[in-house]
């Protein structure tokens, strides 16, 4: 019964144009032959070639990838544990402090998180490098993971876990065989979120990295401070392409998985009830 409205069509068109035109221009001009970034001089893949020759960028990309994989994996384990504690562990002393520490990093300005971690690392005499970036990224991204996972834990039927325990599973087996498969989509999206947060982070990495480890955002930031460059346009295009493919795939996969899972859950509840 919804009527077509010119107002809505216009606001959606303008809104999405605003969101996407900057990125589309960036992508188009990464194929520009000219070094002048705002003058079109024909199609060329020259900047991609130069990018692949640039040792410094490749090294930084490699460091970034290692940090992202390590920190998001540790953060997923810790964040899932934290979510489980928040939703299932009931009361324990210091629970308020615990939930405060889970939520506070989500709203903490990055400059403060970065500064405080740096002061800690210097205080305990830990040399800054890839390890300190991993520790820093794990700390803030585990909080995001725990928020994502706990929203799934809250919504799922607890009687399934109880049934597993009644049927003789140990608590760990019940978690592994019942809970984990059900919350898996949330755990995976938590991991993906942690991974992209780590790939993306400039501020915290700048504070916690040392001369031995430079990540891609740090490299990009110091390059673009001097102005727009066609090499950075090429690099941005590659990153946008990877993210787009990943997000679209992930959303299809998770949609199918969640549809299937809801059906299974319903069937299980019906069978037990």
């Amino acid at each position: 019964m919804r009527r077509f409205s010119w107002f809505n069509a216009t606001s959606l068109t303008l809104g999405f144009a605003f969101l996407y035109i900057p990125m589309i221009i960036l992508i188009l001009y990464s194929f520009n032959a000219s070094k002048l970034v705002t003058v079109w001089a024909g199609f060329s893949t020259r900047w991609y070639g130069e990018l692949l020759q640039n040792e410094a960028f490749l090294n930084a990309a490699w460091v970034t990838l290692k940090v992202a994989v390590a920190s998001s994996t540790i953060a997923t384990v810790l964040g899932t544990m934290a979510a489980y504690v928040m939703v299932r562990a009931g009361r324990f002393s210091g629970r308020t402090l615990f939930s405060g520490m889970i939520y506070a990093p989500l709203v903490m300005p990055e400059v403060i998180t970065g500064l405080s971690l740096l002061l800690l690392f210097i205080g305990i005499g830990l040399d800054r490098g890839i390890v300190t970036i991993i520790l820093a990224h794990t700390t803030f991204s585990m909080c995001y993971v725990s928020v994502v996972v706990s929203s799934r834990l809250v919504s799922f039927d607890r009687s399934l876990e109880e049934a597993a325990l009644d049927l003789g599973c140990s608590p760990f087996e019940a978690f592994r065989l019942v809970t984990l498969p059900i919350i898996a989509p949330a755990v995976i999206s938590g991991w993906l979120l942690a991974f992209t947060l780590s790939l993306d982070d400039l501020v915290i990495a700048s504070f916690t990295s040392g001369p031995s480890a430079t990540t891609l955002p740090i490299k990009i930031f110091s390059a673009v401070r001097l102005g727009v460059s066609p090499e950075i346009n090429a690099l941005s295009t590659i990153m946008i392409a990877i993210v787009t493919v990943a997000v679209i795939t992930a959303s299809f996969v998770s949609k199918r998985a969640s549809v299937r899972q809801q059906a299974e859950e319903k069937a299980a509840v019906r069978a037990t009830g």
Binding site: P22, L26, L199, P217, V224, V228, S236, V243, V247
Partner: peptide, 14 residues
């Protein structure tokens, strides 16, 4: 999901 830094950077050329 796209890099924050890149999205800010894209406005420099505009």
């Amino acid at each position: 999901w796209t890099s924050f830094l890149i999205r800010v950077y894209s406005w420099m050329g505009i």
